[in-house]
Simulated scan of single mutants.
Amino acid sequence: MGAFNLTPSNPLTFILNGIPGLEAAHIWISIPFSMFYIISLLGNITILFVVSKEQTLHKPMFLLLSMLALTDIGMSTCVMPKALCIFWFGFKGITVDGCLTQMFFLYVFTATHSAVLVTMAFDRYVAICDPLRYTTILTNARIAKLGLLGLIRAVLLILPFPLLLRRLPFCANRIIHHTYCEYMAVVKLSCGDTTVNRIYSLVIVLVIIGSDLTLIGLSYGLIIRAVLRLSSKKAHQKALNTCTAHICVMLMSYTPVLFSVLTHRFGQGIAAHVHILLANLYVVVPPMLNPIIYGVKTKELRDKVGKYTCRM
């Protein structure tokens, strides 16, 4: 079994090598990752359950939290089960189709997650800058349509990734030094011309992350301007408190992504195990912390979760 896992004798198989340089510590590394994953599932499923059960939480903000919870579950579940199989059992083989499928769904969830964060920033902008029209501008139906639009955008932009990879010839060495099928890590295994793949990858980063960060920055710029115009210090504090959780979540979400993208292209001096550890932390730590942050900062949600917890 060990020989199979280390040698890709099947031409339709890639080998996910885990975290290079830290293979001996895989079991120990798996302990925090498995705990993070379990906490992430429990936290996000709790949010989905409580929001679905409580009629008073059927509001745009909590609908957005449910969307965020779904994308968080999707992102971590695309990666962690396979990563834990590598850490615990040494099951490193993955078929080409399995690899491309994992990649597609991971990036679809990631891009949808980004779209939800943009919508949440817009939600905060309307709530603070135009509160009297909040209920007419942001209805549940409109939020659902924005969520669907974000999902459609993600599918259309990410679908070329596996299609472009399918046309590439791959070298005899099919060992991916990663715990999951990261796009550029797979591209680097090809013996063919990968110019189109690299250009498209860069375009998608600019389109999704660049445009989404620009919209989020614009929303918060307008929010800060509106807050500074408020005469009451108490009003300042209340307005800023409503944005704190969102800002924390956005920093956690975008910082590791930007680090990973820049490392693949310009960070040759960064140790591989540092890059890959951070890439794994990205798909499990924000999904674990998001429900905790919103549970602490959102009183309505905190009270409802407490109600169900006391019943157990």
Rank of each mutant, 00 (worst) to 15 (best):
L149M: 15
G147E: 07
G221E: 02
A185I: 04
T195H: 03
H178G: 06
S219H: 07
I152N: 03
D123A: 08
R124P: 01
Y134F: 13
I143E: 02
T112E: 05
V205W: 14
R153D: 09
V186M: 06
G210A: 04
R229L: 11
Y220K: 02
L164E: 06
Y180S: 01
Y183Q: 00
I216H: 03
G192W: 07
L148R: 11
T194F: 00
T135V: 03
H177Y: 13
A111M: 02
L228C: 14
L189N: 02
L157R: 10
L165I: 12
D123H: 15
Y220V: 06
A127C: 10
F170L: 01
I128W: 07
I204C: 08
C181V: 13
S211F: 03
G210P: 12
I209C: 05
T136W: 09
V116F: 06
V196A: 00
C171Q: 13
F122T: 15
L202G: 02
S114L: 03
L157P: 07
E182Q: 14
F109V: 00
C191M: 03
L149Y: 10
L156C: 09
A144R: 14
F161Y: 11
G210K: 08
V108C: 05
G210S: 09
L228W: 13
V207S: 03
L151N: 11
G150V: 08
I137K: 10
T179D: 07
L165S: 00
T136S: 15
L218D: 12
K145C: 08
V203G: 00
V205H: 11
I176F: 01
I209H: 09
T112S: 02
R174F: 09
L151K: 12
C171V: 10
V186N: 02
F161V: 11
A111Y: 15
L146I: 10
T119Y: 05
F170N: 00
L163Y: 11
I199K: 06
A172H: 15
T135G: 07
T112L: 03
R198K: 13
N173F: 15
E182M: 09
L222C: 04
M184C: 02
L218Y: 09
I128N: 04
A141F: 12
L149R: 04
D193I: 00
I209S: 09
H113V: 01
C129T: 14
L163D: 07
A111L: 06
K145I: 14
A121V: 02
T110S: 01
S201M: 13
S201A: 07
L156A: 12
H113K: 06
A144I: 13
S201I: 01
L149G: 10
V207R: 04
L151M: 08
M184H: 10
G217P: 07
T214S: 08
N173Q: 15
I128M: 01
V186S: 03
L132S: 11
I175M: 02
A115L: 08
L218K: 09
R142F: 14
T179N: 13
G192H: 11
R225L: 06
T136P: 04
A154S: 06
V155K: 09
A154L: 06
V186Y: 05
D212G: 00
R124D: 07
